[in-house]
Amino acid sequence: MARMKFICDTERCIECNGCVTACKNDNEVPWGVNRRRVVTVNDGIIGQEKSVSVACMHCSDAPCMAVCPVDCFYRTDEGVVLHDKDICIGCGYCSFACPFGAPQFLSKGAFGSRSKMDKCTFCSGGPEENGSVAEFEKYGRNRLAEGKLPLCAEMCSTKALIGGDSDIITDIFNNRVATREKNGHYPGSKAFGWTTAYGGLDTPAPTPTPAAKIPGAK
């Protein structure tokens, strides 16, 4: 079974923000919400400037799921962490718990000054019917159900951001690192956020939880 994950190769990211634009456009993400963004550290310092594209990492042991008071999160069989906007109360606990700042809120919405939470869905929608208008309006595109991968990763011009089955993308990344080492360069042997989101080598695989297992699920 595929375990969908993201990796961003900081040695390749050129801060073009193409992933951010693609995500906003394809999912029609509202003004004020960025499901994905590019963070740059050591800005302007030659040789030390690094950029990384960050969104929900779909953590193996997701802290947002742990703190949600209304239990609106679920993890699919593909390892994608999703949430049900019909249950979310917009309390914001998940945004404090998330180490990547993934949960986003509109500044004005149905719940006073904050809307229901919005975040990257790994382009796999939500609990509405796959590919339906209702799903698109609430969660954006469901590219996984269309047989595609997240657009941000698929359109990345330098292939800094890669997303998909964890076994395959780690293999791609390891191959790059090995090639760099072979050529006498050693940078970027660790992918940003990987151990934070997915743990080390001895971390057990996460158990898919509830929505997919609820009676009536196909």
Binding site: T76, P127, A145
Partner: peptide, 19 residues
């Protein structure tokens, strides 16, 4: 407010964009 079932992606999408 109870959680609803989600359909697996391999069931396909109800639109014209499926590969």
């Amino acid at each position: 407010a109870a959680k609803r079932p989600d359909v697996a992606p391999y069931m396909g999408a109800n639109n014209g964009f499926v590969t």
